[in-house]
Every structure is written in C-alpha cells, then in structure tokens.
Design a protein around this nucleic acid. Structure first.
Lengths: 211, 211
DNA sequence: TAGATTGTTAATCGATTAACAATC
DNA sequence: TAGATTGTTAATCGATTAACAATC
C-alpha cells in the first residue's frame, strides 16, 4: 500500500506541469530544482520532496530533463488518458468551458451538454450538441462519460449529482455554489467556488488597506 | 501590529460565511462550534481557533449567534463595502460572471466590460456596456474601479495587467491561465486556474482507480 | 447554581526547510 | 576526476487537535 500523498502536494502538481510546459515551449532541455524554485517562488527542497513522493525523476549533477519530468507529471495527473466530459447546465459558464480549447488539448473533451431549457436544447455550442435532460440516462448508458461538470443553480445541484452517481458517473467537477458531499467513496468531487475566490481577494484588499 | 493570519484560515472564511448564510436562511438563531463542525466536516477546535484570530464572537455556555457571526465574518471579508468591478475580455466567462447575480448581491457589481473585438464593443451584456479597450484609461480615471477581472487569453494578460496597475488599480482577479506576479506590493492578485482544478480532479480519478 | 460551551494554552501532528551523503 | 545536484534524513516551523480553566 502506497503512502497517501498530501493535498498540498497535489495542488502544486498542475502548477509544476504548467511551468514545465512553458519551459518546454521555450526549448529548455534541463533544469535544476534550484532554477525551477526561483521561477516558481518556492524552495528547491520542496520541489525535490514533492517529486520524490512519486519517484526519482532527476539525476545527480544534472538536474531534471524538462520533457521527461513534464511527461511524468502528466501521467501522475492522468493526462495520458482521455477523459470524456459532459456539462449539465448549458449557460455561459458551460460555453466558456466548451470554447476553451485547452481542456480538450489536455485530454478532457466535452462530448455533450445538457439543459432543461427547450429554447437551447437541440442547438450546438462550439459544435457540441445541447441535449434535453430527459436524454441524460440514455446518453450516459450509451457513451463513455468520465466527468460531469455541473454548471447549474445550486438548487438543482444535489438532485442532479445524485442522478449522475446513480448512472455510474464517478467524478464531478462542481461549479454550483454549494459543497457537494456525496456519501459514495467511489465518487470524486472537485468543488470550484468562484465566489469564495472573490471573497479571498476582497479580504486581501481590506487587510492591505488596514496596514 | 497584528499577527498575520495564515492563508489556510483565510481560505476557510468564505466557507464559514456560506454555511452561516444557509443557517440564517433556515432561521437558525444560534450554533455551537460543535454543531457547526459536524456540518462543515472539520473540528470544533479549529473553528474556535479560526474565529479567535479575529476576536471572540461567541459566548460561553451559549455558542455563537448566527446572524452576528455571519455579519462579522462578512466584515472581515470586506463585504460591508461595495467593490466596483470591471472585466477585461468580454467572452463567455465574462458573461457568466456578469449574469451571476450573487456577485452583485455580495457587493461586487460589474460596472463595465472591455474588449478589443469591434463586433461586440458597444453592445451590452445583462445591461452592462462593452467598451473598447481604447476607452479603458478614461473610464478608470472617471470611475471608482476596485477590482479588475481578467478573462482574456494569457498572451495579453501581463500587458493588460501592467496597464491596469499603472492606472492605479489595486486588485486583480485573474482567470488567464498564467500566474500573474506583479512586483507591486500594493496590488493584490487572486489567480483562478480552472485547468489546475480539472487536473486535480483527474489526479483523484487516477489514484482511485489504482487502489 | 449547574450545565454548557467558549477562549486559550499546551500537545501533537504534518508540512516545509535545511543539511549532506550518494552519485551522476 | 571534480563539480554539481539529486534523493533522503534530520531539524524546524506552523497548523491542527486536545484539554481545560474561565465564564455565561
């Protein structure tokens, strides 16, 4: 049984991946933990500790090969697999997600949208069809759906999430302004709270002014 | 000089605010740290420690008055002041923000949108006008702008952010997929990385499957 | 008053940083 | 080989939890 990796480490992984991707684009071949720590504003020690949770990706006296490390972190994050995504609630946030190419590039293509509003059911957004909520069960049964993104009012979030879990969906990317807590250990939920983020910014503003 | 409050505590504040708001809506008058801890899935001790960073809001033998505590946390988060917001980049994400009433309710009204695309300049989204980027300086000089949200491609984020800071804007809510790091200690930045969030979800999926 | 629950100090736990032997 | 830099152990720091005296 492997040691459980702490949440703090996992939160940093996508950031490592992002910085290594930039280095790769700039044709940087190798980098030491010390150089990377300067760019990312953390300690070299932390970088080495973080990476060694997953294995030794570096080489003494050389540092880390950027392409190799980028790929390995990608694998740790599951970016070597495709994850089909559906979005429930075809509003502006859904449009933003569908239209942002990077999610597809990273391996998270949106394969369908769902909404209750008959005025938009049947239309397409960025080439992706908006289905009726009535067709959700059929669609999920007939297609491989890995992730469901919830971009709908919090009033319906729990009900829809429960329905999705009953259909066998194992992961939910939740944008509803509520903490989804499903009592199913097989289902993973990532809550995105934009208003929390805005309030944190507001806190910083207030505390800066107090100084 | 007050002690610096840790980032971990600040991250929990909006969540306290949210739960207390729900309790308030359900006409709950008072709550003990123990009851709240059960709802929020953290320890009573942590709640008391967190709150006592800012003062004693409770009463021995009674607990906490929900309305009072909600208001006090709101004040700590700066929700007793209005923060005018502008959004740079009038795409779908901007539309989602403008249309989501809650931000305005919390005291963060969007007062203008800005974009380079002449096809949308002059239009309105949810009653808010889309201005040309050429009018940015004039607008900021003539209006009180507290927060600028950046919902534009990362290629332009640094340039626009620098321009905003030069115009005197003190806080940036950044949705561009880049870590904005402005070397101005007076400016606060909150980075929102949706792709990081998605990758964290992906990590959880992968590690669940490994078990 | 007796019971309940806070505010706060002390103990524990976990995460970060420092140090250095291993090794490329 | 000598120099550089990792991987990893040990030390430190900070955050969380436990305990309990204070007090409503």
């Amino acid at each position: 049984m492997e040691e459980k990796i702490s949440k703090a480490v996992i939160r940093r992984l996508p950031r490592y991946y992002r910085y290594l991707g930039d280095l790769l684009n700039n044709n940087v071949e190798r980098i030491s933990s010390n150089e990377l720590s300067a760019k990312m504003k953390l300690t070299a020690s932390q970088i080495r500790q973080d990476l060694n949770n997953f294995g030794g990706f570096g080489q003494q006296g050389y540092g880390y090969n950027v392409k190799y490390l980028h790929d390995e972190i990608g694998k740790i994050l599951g970016l070597d697999h495709k994850h089909n995504m559906i979005i429930i609630g075809a509003g502006n946030l859904a449009s933003a997600i569908v239209r942002y190419d990077k999610f597809e590039t990273l391996g998270f293509p949106t394969i369908a949208l769902f909404d209750n509003n008959i005025n938009i059911v049947g239309k397409t957004i960025n080439g992706i069809k908006v289905h009726s909520m009535d067709d959700l069960d059929k669609f999920v049964n007939e297609n491989k759906v890995d992730i469901a993104a919830l971009t709908l009012p919090k009033e319906h979030a729990i009900e829809v999430a429960t329905r999705l879990v009953n259909l066998g969906i194992k992961s939910i990317w939740n944008f509803s302004h509520i903490d989804l807590e499903l009592n199913d250990p097989d289902v993973v939920v990532e809550n995105v709270h934009l208003s929390d983020s805005l309030m944190q910014l507001s806190y910083e503003i207030v505390s800066k002014n107090k100084q």
